[in-house]
Design a protein around this nucleic acid. Structure first.
Lengths: 220, 220, 220, 220
DNA sequence: CATGAATGAGTCTTCATTCAT
DNA sequence: GATGAATGAAGACTCATTCAT
């Protein structure tokens, strides 16, 4: 997932043998997007220079315009590119599972840590956190994703818990987003203070799970 | 609290009443800083035009340079300006208090919600979240503040709880930052999705306290 | 001579005749330099506007920055551009010559008048005289040239004269630069008073040679 | 001559004793002019900042405008200020003198070296050389001075020499300015190369006189 | 008179975007 | 398609000049 990475210098050996040039060309847009993602995450939208994106993608500034109408178009393309892969695998964990509510939450939370700290996803996260406010379309896209894939699952877990009698109605069950607050904090902390005092995701995850277990009970 | 931000709180009471102009002059840097804060929070550092900052402050572009050497200098001044007021009142709550660990945490968390959702502080928060990564000096400043004032209190609350036997060593007590994760999430969420789906701080606070109470016990 | 200044003297004779645009592009930097030289000579470095340089070169302000990093870079490029051509042909006149010292000096001085009053060289001279003091790099460049090519020849002429017994040691032979003082005066005079009361180089040259002849003797 | 110098920090002891303040104020324009002279010589007209002139004069930028209408007005005032003193003492040397032509020339040339290398006069010279071309009024002023006081004397010396039979008509006697070329060269050289390779006026003067003597004969 | 805050026109420099080759 | 030269609209910053105190 999201593995289009930075530069695939080794051409896929499984394919015939010709088309090394062809291959390259078809990959162009992806390479430009990957370069854009990296630059936008590093400098922010306004401070990113297309010249640098081009250099990182190994092309020339003008070439970007063959694939994207404008800097903004590239920006939105870059932000859309990783959305699917990044959050795709979440939904089905609730449906067929018969553990406790805590078990389900643990599954969700562990998955969140695994996903959100992937290098590519961190880039995305940094951009959304930095620029989301300035780009309504971006905010809306991610809001839809996070609601659709994330918040929704959370609510379904809670509803299931209530239905099974493992939980009882409370302010917490009414606003279950609170339960994943720590992982958001970890992401944001690492976005800003990564150079000074980075959070160790593993350690944070353990404490997070400890908190959930204490609050819900191992079987609650 | 924190409202001393904009205007020097001590006005010269000895002087007559005239000198509206004089008054104005002394306030200039503060007015420019306030305008800068608003613009930087709205558009980010790179996309903010000094022209707009000036207009908002009711002066002309060149005037900014009487007080600040460069756009960057103004940026840093703006970010430093609210630091003290915003976090000053936190420290002393632990020292003389004889409630349970949960009571103390509740005090801290309530205070955090009260402070962080003040309009001025929200501006600061947005800027730090958006630009902190690009401005090491800013990141360092706030890291120092947050560590010194925030994390420190948290750790002292935990230590006190351990000493009083209300808590026992666990992953959570080793990484107590997790406990305030939800408030960070709320801030960040509102920073990005304020226009689409804002979080109601009060409701979030209740759920947050509910979580803490469930996890620590009312007396734990 | 020295007229290769503006345009690369060797035009590609092999190519057809079209490509007027291509032709243009390769010449751009030279055109900008020529325009810069003219403007800098007319107004001085500080008062020259890149906008005017661009207009004179038939391009747009931004284009200058494709070739030169800054106004200062262009300035230095312009001053370096003409150095070689302007002083290149001097050196070899001493080596193989069997006339008297005066004959040699006459050759040198005539050549100096011919060279220094060429329109392009006058521009250079004006800039060096005006701005040399403010641009150490420029001063050093021309000092090296003038010493290497000019002063050196002068000294060799004198040494040759001493060796041949045409001259005898004296304050003048110790400081032979004095011998070319008049031509420097003529240049400077014309730089400043060209509009009021220009010096006629030819008349000045005659008087200068008259002075040298009287001082050294036709055969001395 | 030209002794208004840079900063007269010691108040004239011959005057009474009071009025130290009064004195200061009356001297203001002169102090500003002196400061302007120094700055204009150092940086040229366009690059000189009135702020720096003010600082050097120990006043505030606005104060300059109490005495001078504009930067240009100050410039012209500064350039006029030293003219009289600098060239005043030249004229009378020809009238009553009964030495040879060479003797007279020697007097003139020695006086030129003495005058032109005075620190204050060097400042003036540098400015005229640098900016004269851009300021017709300045060029005209100095042209009048130099013609009136300098060239004129030279011509009278030559005429006297012709009349006395010490000289005979020649290109040199028709263009006697050539005779003082070396001193101009020395000034210009020192203006540009003062930091790299300054000319020693004394040594140059000796060689210059040697040249004149050789050309005219001690008694010619 | 002097101050110094304020102004605003001007200039360098950057960079997204276009376009001929 | 790709290139890279050229464009032109901004925007940061400077500084001569003005003006209220």
């Amino acid at each position: 997932m999201v593995d289009q990475g930075e530069e695939p210098p080794v051409e896929p050996p499984s394919e015939p043998i010709d088309k090394p040039r062809r291959r390259r060309k078809e990959a162009r847009p992806q390479e430009i997007i990957a370069a854009g993602l990296a630059e936008f995450a590093e400098r922010g939208f306004a401070a990113t220079r297309l010249e640098d994106v081009a250099a990182r993608a190994g092309v020339v500034k003008g070439t970007i315009y063959r694939y994207f109408d404008s800097k903004e178009t590239l920006f939105e393309a870059a932000l859309s590119s990783g959305v699917g892969p990044a959050f795709e695998s979440l939904p089905d964990i609730v449906a067929d599972h018969d553990g406790s509510t805590f078990d389900l939450l643990r599954l969700l939370v562990v998955r969140l840590y695994e996903t959100l700290f992937l290098p590519e996803v961190e880039l995305l996260a940094r951009i959304i956190i930095s620029e989301g406010h300035r780009f309504p379309a971006v905010a809306e896209l991610y809001h839809r994703i996070l609601i659709g894939k994330g918040r929704d699952i959370l609510r379904r877990i809670i509803e299931r818990g209530l239905a099974r009698g493992e939980l009882s109605p409370s302010p917490l069950s009414a606003t279950p987003e609170v339960l994943i607050g720590p992982v958001v904090m970890a992401i944001v902390w690492n976005t800003t203070f990564d150079r000074l005092d980075p959070i160790e995701p593993k350690r944070f995850l353990e404490a997070h799970l400890d908190l959930l277990e204490k609050a819900l009970g191992r079987n609650g």
